[in-house]
Structures are given as C-alpha cells and as structure tokens.
C-alpha cells in the first residue's frame, strides 16, 4: 500500500533538516501507529505525504500502490486515495461545510472518472454518516470548522474521511482535545472504515486511543527517523516509561 523509503526532508525556506531518513512500510488493511516526542517530525511526515508546500524532499521516495506520489499535486494525491486528518483542522469562513464536502467528493469522483453524486444521494449519505459521529445538521451548514470546538473539528475530520473513502488514512493526533466519549465515537468511526483493505497511520501520544483502534504495528519516531518498530506492546512501554529508555537504547546502539 504505502512505502516510504529513506525520506529526507528539509524546510524550503531555511536550512533545516527535519526528516532524516524515514523508512516505513504499511501493508493493505494494516493499522500503524506512530508515536514520538514533540517535534520529532510526525506531522511533517504527514504533511509531506499529503503534498503541503514549504518542504523540500532531498532524498528518498514515497510510493502509494507502487506509484511515486511526491510528484503529484495535493489534490491528485487525494484522488489517489490519500487522506490526512489534520492535527489542526483549518477554519474557512464563508465556505459551508456541506458545500465543501460535496465539492470535494465530486472532485475526487471526477478525477477517478466516476459520475458525480446527485444532491439527494449526497445528502442521504452525509446525514447518515454525520449522525453516527453525532454531528448535527446545523454543524453541517456552518462554515468549515468556524466556531467548532476542538472536539467538533476532529469529528468533522473523521466525517470527511468517511465521506471520501480513502485508501490510506493518516490521523495526526486526532485524539488530542477529545473527551472520553468523543474519543469512543471517533474510534468507532475509524473502526467502521476498517474493511481489511483500507490502511491507517495513526499518529498519537497516548496509548488510550490505541485501546480503541488496535494497531498492528507501532513505530517510534525521534529526531526525524523511525528509531524503533514493534507490536502494540511498544505503545504500552511508552505509556509506562516515556521515551527516555528508548532514546538511550538507540543512542547506545
């Protein structure tokens, strides 16, 4: 599904290397978690995958189903099936949530050579999906993320993901800012999308989310690299002991 090979990324504007050789392989239907200290490069990895400006790839490649996506525009990557749930969802005054989602869904369908969704079909689908995430109709009418609480923004991200039905979902700290009930809702939303084919990368600081969304593989990122990969027990180890031991282990090696 996804293969990141020796990815080196620096900031475009300044001489600052942020990713220093990231290697990651996510198979079809798998759930991978990425944990790691603040500033280690987790969000940067997700931004580079989705094609945000401001970063320069100096080495390495990213293959999605064998195709190098680094040459693609963000919208093309989205059409190819990549989705990023933002750590900080963007507020867009003046653009209605509903209009935004319909435009996005239809743009992707068009890019894939599918028929546009009719207004009624779209409405039916979004209502059902919004309901399961406890997003009320009024929120759908409001401008994208404007005046949404932190938790509402995160739920809105999951709603978008559910509507766009991507192949690969990257969730960047979707759990932060969620109360216990919202965390359950969001996890259920994510789990409902697990169909054995769709893959997930879940970036998080907390083991708690991983109780709900069970990862197959856990990676620890530090200073622009994946420094350790293991099973779900690795997340527990981080939860209990923090990163100090892991970092020391790597430095010692």
């Amino acid at each position: 599904m996804l293969e990141i090979k020796n990815l080196h990324v620096k900031l475009e504007e300044e001489d600052k290397q942020i990713l220093k050789g990231v290697d990651l392989k996510v198979g079809e239907g798998e759930v991978h978690a990425i944990m790691g200290p603040n500033g280690s490069g987790k969000s940067t990895t997700s931004y580079v995958l989705s094609g945000r400006d401001g970063y320069e790839v100096t080495e390495g490649e990213v293959l999605l189903d064998g195709e190098n996506i680094l040459e693609l525009e963000p919208e093309e990557r989205a059409a190819a099936g990549l989705f990023l749930a933002f750590q900080y969802p963007v507020e867009i005054p003046g653009v209605g949530n509903m209009t935004f989602l319909r435009t996005a869904v239809n743009a992707q369908r068009k890019a894939r050579g599918q028929e546009e969704l009719s207004a009624t079909d779209f409405l039916k689908e979004i209502r059902a999906k919004a309901k399961s995430l406890k997003i009320d109709a009024e929120m759908l009418k409001r401008p994208v993320n404007v005046g949404f609480s932190g938790g509402e923004k995160k739920r809105n991200e999951i709603l978008q993901m559910a509507m766009l039905e991507p192949k690969l979902c990257i969730l960047d700290e979707t759990d932060s800012g969620l109360d216990v009930d919202a965390m359950k809702l969001v996890s259920e939303g994510v789990n409902a999308l697990r169909d054995g084919k769709r893959s997930f990368i879940v970036i998080t600081h907390y083991q708690r989310l991983l109780d709900h969304i069970k990862p197959d593989v856990v990676h620890i990122m530090s200073n622009g690299r994946i420094i350790k990969t293991g099973g779900p027990e690795l997340a527990l180890e981080v939860e209990n002991n923090g990163y100090a031991d892991l970092l020391a282990e790597v430095e010692g090696a």
Binding site: S50, G51, R52, D53, E73, P74, E75, R77, A78, A79, F83, L84, F86, P89, V90, I92, P93, G94, V95, T99, F100, T103, A104, V105, A107, Q108, A111, P143, V144, Q160, L164
Partner: peptide, 21 residues
C-alpha cells in the same frame, strides 16, 4: 491547502475561497 488535500483542484478551491471572500 486544506481544500486541495481533500481533492479539490487548485482552481476550484480558489473559486470557493473567492466566493467566501
């Protein structure tokens, strides 16, 4: 970027933001 990351092509996204403006 947010709009584009959802698959909305740049020109169309620009139009949406223009209408919002």
């Amino acid at each position: 970027f947010y709009l584009r990351s959802r698959g909305v092509p740049t020109a169309e996204a620009t139009d949406l933001l223009t209408l919002a403006f």
